[in-house]
Design a protein around this nucleic acid. Structure first.
Lengths: 219, 219
DNA sequence: ACCCGCTATTGACACAGTGTCAACAGCCGG
DNA sequence: CCGGCTGTTGACACTGTGTCAATAGCGGGT
């Protein structure tokens, strides 16, 4: 069952290489099975090293999982998608199409990590996912023409972060349950985003910032 | 730190009562902290019993957590919301408004359980959440007039399940981050659902079932 | 080519938390 | 008052994580 046939002592490698190799195995395992059911011993065996080395490089099991999540969630880069497009709808369609193609590459692990089944139940994991959503939200805002200065706490960004949840849910229905086709997923995400951009964002921007109302004085 | 001042042996109670009491404590603890950081010993202490009793009633830690998730996720009952409404938009607005009010009651724990931070990484947990989403999806479909026979695998239901993710994400932005107001959340969920009902569902229904296309011959 | 130091890698240890189970003891009927 | 039923306990075994001094592979100096 050992991926690497190496039975004896592991070759002495450059730390970066070794770390990379271990991470690759961890990504695969955490994609196949939920967090609790993957032991550090298993990761070590898959990587052809001993358990001690895992902790040497990543500290704790949570530590290596955080790196796995980071690796999965920071891969997509929406910037590449922005081609020449005039209407909001065209830009939306380009972004959504590009995202679906990208996420299809990493398939299972992306779904497992972003969904509820892979998570360790750690605030740090939540933070990483939240940061990734916020980055995505900012990029989407820029892609659809709402590129002005929006703070992280602005309702515009918040709306787009919520939209990211719709995206994840849709990808799950597409890749895991296979209850919608890629075309149907594309349709759903496109129409929803168009509705958000055209109907929700303008109205939301007219409201005062909720933080500004509930916490009037700085502090 | 013991919630119940009872130091000595716990009173002999009716199993249903005891079970209920333990579950109440577990709901609170799992709402405050992520799964991994809550030990069975802690739940036992909070409930004023010993750890052995927890396992006696719920089998495993996972077992009690599953019951917590079930309790949280099956509370909302969308049927009550359907009042006299003519247009699709009115029905959508009623449903969304009712849901937001309901979920506000359970606040923290609902968000913790449905989001990625409370989960244990168990397929069973995923299944419970999926079932809850599917129930909600079916109810929404019925509420907005798509009440005909839709199988669990139908793209219509899948689209609504994905919408449930948007709902959760929005509730999180509202209750946890406080980056949107209830009105903004209401607006987002309403517009998105209207777009789904009016634009996405009709188009999705025209497509052939994805399972039918990708798995032409049964198995 | 040899040795030597650096450090990647190991194996054994300690510990926390879960799950099991026979024994105990509170409540109820006779 | 006593005997059983069963809710409840405490001790045990086990799995898996995290720590650390000891080991051994590789490169550089001579």
């Amino acid at each position: 069952m050992v991926t690497h046939g190496e039975a004896g002592r592991a070759r002495r490698l450059d730390p970066d290489i070794r770390r990379e190799e271990i991470l690759r195995c961890a990504v695969r395992l955490f994609g196949e099975r939920p967090y609790a059911e993957v032991s550090t011993a298993e990761i070590a065996e898959a990587a052809g090293v001993t358990r001690g080395l895992i902790h040497h490089y990543f500290g704790t099991k949570r530590g290596i999982y955080l790196d796995v999540v980071r690796a999965m969630v920071l891969v997509p880069n929406l910037d590449e998608a922005s081609g020449p497009a005039d209407s909001v709808r065209e830009r939306v369609e380009q972004s959504v199409g590009w995202f679906l193609d990208t996420v299809a590459l990493h398939g299972g692990t992306y779904v497992a990590v972003t969904g509820p089944e892979g998570i360790a139940g750690d605030p740090e994991v939540e933070r990483i996912l939240a940061v990734a959503d916020d980055i995505a939200a900012r990029k989407i805002l820029r892609a659809v023409g709402y590129g002005w200065d929006s703070t992280e706490h602005s309702p515009e960004r918040a709306v787009l972060r919520a939209y990211c949840q719709l995206v994840k849910g849709t990808v799950r229905e597409w890749l895991r349950s296979r209850s919608v086709t890629r075309e149907q997923a594309y349709l759903l995400l496109t129409e929803a985003l168009v509705a958000i951009v055209e109907d929700v964002l303008p109205a939301v921007s007219r409201y005062a910032s909720p933080a500004g109302r509930e916490l009037p004085r700085g502090h």
